[in-house]
């Protein structure tokens, strides 16, 4: 058994608003081991982004704990990197692609050579060596998201968190980016927590899929995906087992939407 990297226990988040308090997250507990690729799916509006922001230390939870590497998360931890859905707003348009990837490395104590090497390596990993001098807004949406991934890769985090990163790109680009994520996971052993609303995507990418209930959210199912680590857009998706898993997750999400699943007594 691999060592536990991320531990979420009894996480709870209540938003206060003028129209009344909204309980976004009821009670979420799960853990993730080092080197794992875990996908989180759930019906829309189930508080996926809220959960991620709590884990990333960007939002204070109302109750429960998040531990990364045994240390409790209170602010953004230094050994974590985020890829947002809104690539257009998470990349800085006044910096070049290279500048964007370099920015988080500036205060890491690295020599010029080491830093350049990290950047070159990260850009190569996402296939953007040629675009280093361009500005993000000169690139297509898919390429911009690659830049954001390169930035996270160069940062060398222990865990990479992705918040519906491919929701805004077209289907073909999306397939390429999914394979990129799989490759980063396999070749570099990166631990990735991947949030999506796409059921196919979660099954194709994940080693585990965590299905969330509708809001106030709890973990409805924690499913191990027993597909081979080497996956392929055509053959993997054609496997009977893939279809089975997909159907299973689909049914779970449908149940979650209708609120049929019963929350176990704590």
């Amino acid at each position: 058994m691999r060592e536990t990297l991320l531990q979420v226990e009894h996480l709870k988040k209540v938003y206060e608003s003028s129209t009344g308090n909204v309980e976004a997250i009821g009670d979420i507990s799960f853990s993730m081991s080092a080197g794992e690729l875990v996908c989180i799916v759930g019906p829309s509006g189930c508080g996926k982004t809220t959960l991620l922001k709590c884990i990333a230390g960007l939002l204070r939870s109302t109750g429960g704990t998040v531990e990364l590497d045994g240390k409790r998360v209170t602010g953004p931890p230094p050994n974590m990197a985020l890829v947002f859905q809104e690539y257009g707003r998470s990349l800085y348009p006044w910096l070049t692609v290279r500048g964007n990837v370099e920015l988080p490395l500036k205060h890491k104590k690295l020599s010029r050579v080491e830093r350049d090497q990290l950047i070159d390596d990260a850009l190569e990993a996402v296939g953007l060596e040629q675009a280093a001098k361009s500005y993000p807004w000169q690139l297509s949406g898919g390429m911009q998201q690659r830049v954001a991934i390169a930035r996270a890769v160069a940062y060398q985090p222990e865990v990479l968190i992705m918040d519906e990163p491919f929701a805004a790109v077209d289907a073909q680009t999306r397939a390429d980016l999914e394979d990129l994520v799989r490759r980063l996971h396999l070749e570099r052993g990166m631990s990735i927590l991947f949030v999506t609303h796409d059921i196919d995507e979660s099954v194709y990418l994940g080693e585990r899929v965590i299905v969330l209930s509708k809001s106030p959210t709890w973990v409805q199912e924690d499913l191990t995906i027993d597909l081979a680590p080497e996956r392929d857009q055509i053959t993997t998706r054609a496997l009977p087992r893939f279809t089975e898993l997909r159907t299973h997750v689909y049914e779970q999400v449908q149940r979650a939407k209708r609120g049929q699943a019963v929350r176990p007594a704590a």
Binding site: K53, L58, P76, R89, S90, P104
Partner: peptide
Amino acid sequence: SVMTETARSFAITRAE
């Protein structure tokens, strides 16, 4: 807001 969150998540210093 997303740009600010990006900066926070990468622990970018105040001056930077």
